[in-house]
């Protein structure tokens, strides 16, 4: 009987180890999405996560609203004086508005040729703390597919790496495994933005002769095949010329505040790089 138990233990160990090796090997060299079993787990557990998330948000909202009420009287006085100043400023902006309207007409034309977007809510964050990914409440059923770019009003958020019928996993641009082909808006120097931490990213492969300086805006180049050109990625924090290295050492503050990410937009564009790989296969 004892021998039989240890026999089962050994087999359990071998199967578990084999499964882990299988998981590792299935992940190497190419991007994969969730398989059917994993999709089932996500579809069952993600609604629970969504519920918990909403409860936490509501409690936090209630708590903050309570503290806001305490300061409301003081704020009221302060706001009245601010209104007078703003009235003056308002007349100046009326002139600018006329110019803006003309520009908006031009922008409408540009927007009409861009791909459609779909709004999604963030239901969960990466549970490990080491990797930077989020789960959103839109999946295949909403028309989302692999490698679609995810943005918000501030800039690039990440790309879709796994999908199930109603949920998707987004790898954030601040993850250390993420890289985005970018441009420095002012100088047009190209480089690769990679994640370092939640608040700092780095831009690699920017040649030393470029004159990138702090506060320069970094935008997507559109060359990676995933992100459309011109989306804000971040702002240069500092630039260093390290001796003996070919490229500049550039640190970037991401345009998006990832600690307050609640809603995102998925750009419903076809992934050209994926089609290329499929055709090749």
């Amino acid at each position: 009987m004892r021998g039989l138990i240890s026999f089962y233990k050994i087999w359990f160990g071998i199967i578990a180890f084999g499964f882990v090796l299988f998981l590792f090997s299935s992940n190497s060299g190419r991007e994969i999405t969730w398989n059917s079993a994993e999709q089932l787990i996500i579809e069952v557990t993600a609604p629970l996560q969504k519920l918990i998330n909403q409860s936490i948000n509501s409690t936090r909202g209630f708590w903050y609203n309570y503290f806001d009420l305490i300061n409301v009287r003081q704020d009221n006085k302060h706001l009245h004086s601010e209104i007078d100043a703003l009235k003056m400023e308002n007349s100046r902006y009326r002139d600018l508005l006329a110019t803006h309207k003309r520009m908006q007409e031009l922008l409408k034309f540009t927007n009409s040729i861009k791909p459609p977007v779909i709004a999604a809510q963030v239901t969960g964050l990466d549970p490990t703390g080491w990797f930077k990914s989020i789960i959103i409440d839109k999946g295949k059923n909403a028309g989302i597919s692999l490698n679609m770019p995810v943005v918000n009003a501030d800039g690039v958020v990440g790309k879709i790496v796994s999908i199930s019928p109603n949920y998707a996993k987004v790898l954030l641009v601040i993850d250390q495994n993420s890289s985005v082909d970018c441009l420095v808006q002012r100088t047009r120097d190209r480089g690769m933005v990679k994640g370092l931490s939640a608040v700092i990213s780095k831009m690699d492969y920017v040649v030393k002769r470029s004159d990138v300086v702090a506060d320069d805006i970094i935008i997507t180049s559109g060359l990676g095949g995933i992100f459309p050109k011109g989306l804000p990625v971040g702002k240069v924090l500092n630039v260093k010329d390290v001796q003996g290295k070919l490229f500049k050492d550039i640190r970037i503050i991401p345009a998006v505040d990832f600690s307050k990410l609640e809603e995102v937009l998925v750009i419903l564009k076809e992934d050209t790089s994926l089609n290329y790989h499929l055709e090749k296969e």
Binding site: N27, D126, V161
Partner: peptide, 8 residues
């Protein structure tokens, strides 16, 4: 499944 890291 929920993490963005290596599978397994």
């Amino acid at each position: 499944i929920y993490s963005g890291g290596l599978y397994g």
